[in-house]
Write a protein that binds this DNA or RNA. Structure first.
Lengths: 223, 223
DNA sequence: GGTGTATTCTATAGGCTTATAGAAACGAAA
DNA sequence: TTTCGTTTCTATAAGCCTATAGAATACACC
């Protein structure tokens, strides 16, 4: 402990992050069960068995990647919920923050979304609880907006929350492959879409284009 | 060929469908690469090797299930697009039809959504083209609505189409586990959400509740 | 140069899975 | 009862993958 000063404190942490990043990349590309530890090792330029110096099992690597991918979502969402601003701004902020990790950590997010179900029961359930709490935060922001009259009264907040989260998570699948779709465009379009469908048209919906936009009146019900 | 009359015509087709259904169930539950042919055989109550009387390879089974899961989407969407009604009704119909297969064929749909990427290149690309054509139909319905002034002018139709499809596909993940969410509620809520976010408020938005709903004016840009 | 820790290596056991070969069982029709 | 096509069975080869054991290397510090 005393003398391995200059090397141990920094490098190991960085190396561990590199291992996780390699695992995330491979799991995201090929799917957990289709990915081999050999694949991960190749990304790192080391031998397959050398990986086991860092991870106890392949499953543990998946768990680490998933935790990493989930990290922060809850916290940031809760901060937005508690923070200042009306419900419309909060919803737009939730969307932005939900999509933001795709910029730098898309692999982690994708593995979290698509592969966490292959975790052993214990950790899968733990992570599942996080996800459900996150859903509830979005739902509550919507409920709060409806309660305050900012959003429409009869709004089905549960479905709306699931829709919002669902469209964002779907974006994780095509982000980067869809041409001409930077995050700003995605979150802007999603916010506008949701807000004008959800809000009763407060002063500040998350509209990016089309400002001078006199609306006609929606007056009839469908069917 | 001449004398196997009474038995061959019916049973084999049904049996083949049972095989596919078993494969779909197992692939949906465990994921393609985690599922074994043994698992499928167990569902059917036969031996693992007996499966190979029906399928040439496990991969072929996946392809059959995916094709089955994708079946009809394109056709029905195209019919809606060409059919009568305004864009709002068409969009609502697209959502309904997109979600409807979850009622009886959820396993197939889920496998199509989550496991098709593990198909060999050729068939994966073929199926991918279908999916993209489907996206384009949704997008065109939106464009048409915007062109005719039924939807808002500056509407980002591409993002809106991806959002709509994304929220529906996300629903495939939680449908059946989410309590109190029959398909009617889902498609109704999604339609209302999208339409009021998308339309410029023509006579008939897909509103189920809240009709008298005078909107205030959205006038400011976000940020 | 010697020492000790961290990191990577070679070699391989052991388990699981797909797919094939060939035999058996089952029925319907002759 | 025999025949014949269909369906399922037993047995197993062959390949792939995870994880372990133990040796070798690198490198900082004395």
């Amino acid at each position: 402990m005393p003398r391995r000063a200059a090397r141990v404190p920094v490098a190991p942490k960085r190396r561990a992050a590199e291992i996780r990043a390699a695992a995330a990349k491979v799991f995201a590309e090929r799917g957990y069960h289709n990915a081999t530890t050999q694949d991960i090792a190749e990304v790192l330029g080391i031998r397959q068995a050398s990986l086991y110096y860092y991870i106890p099992t392949k499953e543990a690597a998946l768990e680490a990647v998933c935790l990493d991918g989930a990290e922060g979502y809850m916290t940031r969402a809760a901060a937005i919920q508690r923070g200042p601003g009306d419900a419309a701004h909060k919803l737009a902020a939730l969307l932005r923050e939900h999509l933001e990790p795709l910029r730098d950590r898309a692999d982690f997010v994708r593995v979290f979304l698509r592969e966490r179900r292959h975790l052993p029961d214990a950790s899968r359930r733990r992570i599942g609880r996080h996800a459900r709490r996150y859903e509830r935060i979005v739902e509550q922001v919507l409920k709060e907006g409806a309660r305050r009259g900012e959003f429409r009264r009869g709004l089905d907040c549960r479905m709306a929350a699931l829709a919002a989260i669902g469209m964002c998570n779907a974006a994780a699948a095509w982000y980067g492959r869809e041409p001409e779709a930077p995050l700003e465009r995605i979150s802007g379009a999603f916010a506008q879409l949701l807000l004008e469908g959800v809000s009763r048209a407060q002063p500040k919906p998350a509209a990016r284009r089309n400002r001078a936009n006199p609306r006609r009146r929606p007056d009839h019900a469908e069917r």
